[in-house]
């Protein structure tokens, strides 16, 4: 599904990604871990197409398309979804209205008809149940005055609505208490299937207790320095990131 080759990127003068290789197949969950400043969020942003980052080298193939050639909105329409670490507030625009606009723009791009009000409502009700979110939240201005947990739950609701092929969860666990974390993870797990893939970007192992990854990659100084299975995450938790840093220093 996703094939990243030797990806390099910088912001301003700072080179952040120094040659990332990563392959993600349909049905897989990959966790990207690493200490602060290792480039985790940059990788997520580059995949989503944020303009502040300049790609200086490498290639990204997404379902046979050159991802780097696509605008951010077209990437979304092709099936890339990012759950934001800090979801943005849009006053006066309800989640419902926001999702209706998004879904219909995506459908138009794919040559499908816009959903009528009834079908949209039906879809929404179904997804609300799936991610355990209350409609009162969806009627409110998007993310305005939401608690940390509400924001993240709302992100997962949007993900459920848009049914992406590749979901990128950027530090979705940050600012969540254990109950919220469980609800969010449950939602993500319910949305997993053999046709889609998930990249979980996280600093802590904690989230991976709930969203169990097939692969774990450790990012350090803009490179993937170690890959493994979910046991790697546990090892990291036990030994800390200094373990990786030392290993690299020795090599």
């Amino acid at each position: 599904m996703l094939n990243i080759k030797n990806l390099q990127a910088r912001i301003g003068e700072n080179q952040i990604l120094n040659g990332i290789d990563l392959k993600v197949n349909a049905g897989e969950v990959h966790a990207i871990m690493g200490p602060n400043g290792s480039g985790k969020s940059t990788l997520a942003s580059v995949l989503a197409g944020r303009e502040d980052y300049e790609v200086t080298g490498g290639k990204i193939d997404f379902l046979g398309k050159d991802l780097l050639e696509l605008s951010p909105e077209d990437r979304a329409r092709e099936g890339i979804f990012m759950a934001f670490q800090y979801p943005v507030e849009i006053p006066g625009v309800s989640t419902i209205n926001f999702m209706k606009t998004a879904l219909n723009q995506i459908r138009t791009y794919r040559g499908q008809q816009a959903l009528d009000a009834v079908s949209f409502l039906q879809l929404m009700k179904e997804k609300m149940k799936l991610v355990e979110i209350d409609q009162s939240l969806l009627n409110r201005s998007l993310n305005e005055g939401f608690s940390g947990g509400e924001k993240k739950r709302n992100e997962i609701f949007q993900m459920a609505m848009l049914e992406p092929k590749l979901a990128i969860l950027d530090e979705t666990d940050s600012g969540l208490d254990i109950d919220a974390l469980r609800i969010v993870a449950n939602g993500v797990n319910k949305l997993r299937n053999k046709n889609n893939a998930t990249i979980v970007v996280t600093h802590y192992q904690r989230l991976l207790d709930y969203i169990v990854p097939d692969y774990v990659h450790v990012l350090y100084k803009g490179k993937i320095v170690k890959s493994g299975t979910k046991e790697l995450a546990l090892e990291l938790e036990a030994k800390g990131y200094d373990w990786i840093k030392n290993e690299i220093a020795v090599a």
Binding site: A48, G49, R50, E51, D52, S71, P72, E73, R75, A76, R77, F81, M82, F84, P87, V88, E89, I90, P91, G92, V93, N97, F98, M99, T101, A102, L103, Q105, I106, Y109, S141, Q158, L162
Partner: peptide, 29 residues
């Protein structure tokens, strides 16, 4: 904010529609 625009873009909403959405939300009252 660029952040608001990017958030919309990432959901598949183009820039024109994003600005319209944000401005209408702001003026809703």
């Amino acid at each position: 904010g660029e952040d608001q625009i990017f958030y919309c873009l990432q959901r598949g909403i183009d820039e024109e529609a994003a600005v319209a959405l944000i401005v209408n939300g702001y003026a809703k009252e």
